[in-house]
Nucleic acid binder design. Structure first.
Length: 276
DNA sequence: CTCAGTGTTCAGTG
DNA sequence: TCACTGAACACTGA
């Protein structure tokens, strides 16, 4: 699920289901890896609380409650937040293929019931996600260590360029660094570099001011567009590299070949004919 | 059976 | 101390 657009979509789900509601039941899986806070402390912190709003910074999502600490979640590689389909059939069985369609979803780690009967479930098959409690999420680690939120706090062009100029690593690696821009992940970084027409291997500090502006604009455009689409990738523009990034040895809409290299520790899809 | 993946962290290096 | 790199983590699906 989880880069900034997907987490923002999850935040909207959380707000729709829980904002203004009281938590009447809490269920926790016995998973000490994903549950950084113990089931007992989670229950103590959440049960009976009223949810004020849902917040997000980068890929972290939290619920503001009427008493601290608050619930903070990170989706890792495979986590997600789910609500029962409105008016849909409640499947009791949650095995096999489309585990997200079942209720509760398979791999559910935390489940909340609200006072109007609404429900939220955090599920994470690969267990790289985390569920935490924090008194002041924005100021404490891990969120306190992050850079600007790539959607809501994009710095002005001058400042953005200065931050870029301070980094010697490949620009792709810098985009992935959450202490630089919180919320940018592998596919967003590749999409941004493609649309800005920049070679992902370039040292960040080697970019010209014009390239810095192009990168910043592309970051804003990709994120605004993906969030407006509700993180539904089928609704992303057909011109985006996203739709072809895993078609090995294939070409973009312009007929240019896609190349795959490991940069910043991640497989990077890019188009040498376009990105310089 | 092996490998890579929409992510983060930590040990090791220079 | 800092910036950076690569491996580890855990599990699923190709």
């Amino acid at each position: 699920m989880p880069e900034l657009p997907e987490v923002e979509a999850a935040r909207l789900i959380a707000a729709r289901v829980a904002a203004g509601r009281r938590i009447t039941a809490v269920w926790c899986a016995g998973d000490p890896i994903v549950l950084e806070a113990s089931p007992a402390s989670l229950r103590r912190a959440l049960l009976g609380r009223r949810v004020r709003r849902a917040g997000r910074h980068g890929k972290h999502l939290w619920l503001e409650l009427d008493r601290r600490p608050w619930l903070v979640v990170h989706f890792g590689m495979s986590g997600g937040l789910y609500a029962p389909k409105r008016g849909g059939v409640r499947l009791r069985v949650s095995g096999s293929r489309d585990w997200r369609a079942a209720w509760p979803p398979r791999f559910t780690k935390l489940r909340l019931t609200l006072d109007d009967g609404g429900e939220l479930a955090f599920a994470d098959p690969r267990r790289l996600g985390r569920i935490r409690l924090r008194h002041d999420p924005r100021r404490e680690p891990p969120i306190g260590d992050l850079g600007f939120d790539a959607l809501r706090e994009l710095p002005p062009p001058r400042r953005f360029f200065e931050l870029l100029r301070a980094r010697a690593a490949p620009v792709k690696a810098v985009l992935l660094d959450q202490a630089f821009a919180a919320g940018v992940g592998n596919w967003v970084a590749d999409e941004v570099l493609y649309q800005a027409r920049i070679d992902p291997r370039r040292p960040a500090r080697s970019l010209s001011p014009a390239e810095g502006r192009a990168l910043r604009s592309a970051m804003r455009s990709v994120l605004v567009t993906a969030v407006a689409a509700g993180a539904d990738s089928d609704r992303y523009p057909r011109t985006w590299l996203f739709h072809r990034r895993w078609e090995r040895g294939t070409a973009t809409t312009g007929g240019e070949p896609i190349r795959h290299d490991t940069i910043g520790g991640r497989t990077t899809a890019w188009v040498p004919a376009v990105q310089r």
